[in-house]
Simulated scan of single mutants.
Amino acid sequence: MFPFKLSLNASTLFPFGLGIKEQLRIAAEAGYEGFEIWIRDLEAHVTNGGSIRELKRYIADTGIVVVNAIAFFKWSDQSPEVREEGLRQAEREMSMLAELGCPAVAAPPFGEVGQVTLDEMAVNYARLAELGDQTGVVPYLEFWGRAKKLARLSEAIYVAAESGRADTRILLDPFHMHTGGSRLEGLSCLNGNRIGIVHVNDYPASSDPLLVTDEERLFPGDGAAPSSRLSELLRQIGYTGYLSLELFTQDYGDMSAVEVASHGIKKIKKAYGV
């Protein structure tokens, strides 16, 4: 039994230099139900003469669903000026995503956050969530293992609680749980509906959490990540949403883009199936 839905993050296809339409086509051809776009690829599409309306029609024709977007705005920077510009950027990008029909956007601790307290971050997230209310695009609170703040699952749970937003949803990633030292069992503090999306990947058994790089991420099941236990915990808390393959591999050898995408589906189902 496989209780989750399958998604592909555009980063997995970056070595092939594809435009956003080609990325979506490959994902649909391989059999994914969902796709995570990167805002930079959407902006490039528009800059090169494409329209969001036409892209939305193209997506509908492929039968795939755009489920989330990867963006980098400094919504909780310690500088008030930088933070305000980050929120203005977030509003612009959320508006584009709303036009496309994308329901969510990742909100990691991008920028200088070392001097920001978790309570201040909760206030900043609440402001970002208000922009989400206005645009209809939900910001998924993402923790980064190497961030100076919001590096662990426990910190994300705290920020979510203190934000006063009962609808806050957290973005999970086993790589960031590994690099930040998050306890997997902490997931038992969540309900499945408090998770926006789960990025899936793996990392080498010999990897040092302080030194392993994004480029060293592996297909699920090819490393030491506790994928089976993560799958079990996700099922226990009632999560049935998307598992999205997010790799940053620079060279897949002789594999084509569709072969990489198809291989990813097999690896996810094997690592996260019952």
Rank of each mutant, 00 (worst) to 15 (best):
residue 185 E to W: 10
residue 47 T to Y: 05
residue 52 I to S: 04
residue 207 S to Q: 01
residue 148 K to I: 01
residue 113 V to F: 05
residue 90 A to K: 09
residue 54 E to I: 04
residue 3 P to E: 03
residue 235 R to W: 02
residue 255 M to Y: 11
residue 21 K to H: 09
residue 21 K to M: 12
residue 13 L to Q: 11
residue 213 T to M: 11
residue 104 A to H: 02
residue 160 A to K: 00
residue 104 A to S: 15
residue 120 E to S: 12
residue 31 G to Y: 06
residue 271 A to I: 04
residue 179 T to Y: 15
residue 46 V to C: 07
residue 198 V to N: 01
residue 264 G to E: 01
residue 246 E to S: 09
residue 191 N to F: 02
residue 18 L to T: 05
residue 86 G to W: 01
residue 5 K to P: 07
residue 266 K to T: 11
residue 8 L to S: 06
residue 17 G to P: 06
residue 74 K to S: 07
residue 137 V to I: 14
residue 244 S to V: 15
residue 116 V to L: 09
residue 17 G to F: 07
residue 113 V to E: 09
residue 88 R to C: 13
residue 190 L to T: 14
residue 53 R to L: 03
residue 201 N to Q: 15
residue 66 V to W: 08
residue 18 L to I: 04
residue 239 Y to S: 08
residue 181 G to V: 01
residue 87 L to Q: 14
residue 77 D to W: 04
residue 68 N to C: 12
residue 24 L to M: 03
residue 2 F to A: 06
residue 72 F to G: 02
residue 45 H to D: 01
residue 272 Y to M: 09
residue 133 D to G: 08
residue 87 L to V: 09
residue 54 E to Y: 05
residue 100 L to Q: 00
residue 240 T to Y: 04
residue 271 A to R: 01
residue 71 A to R: 03
residue 174 P to D: 11
residue 147 A to C: 10
residue 204 P to N: 03
residue 61 D to P: 00
residue 244 S to L: 10
residue 246 E to R: 02
residue 41 D to F: 11
residue 217 R to M: 04
residue 268 I to W: 09
residue 265 I to W: 06
residue 244 S to A: 15
residue 67 V to I: 15
residue 224 A to M: 07
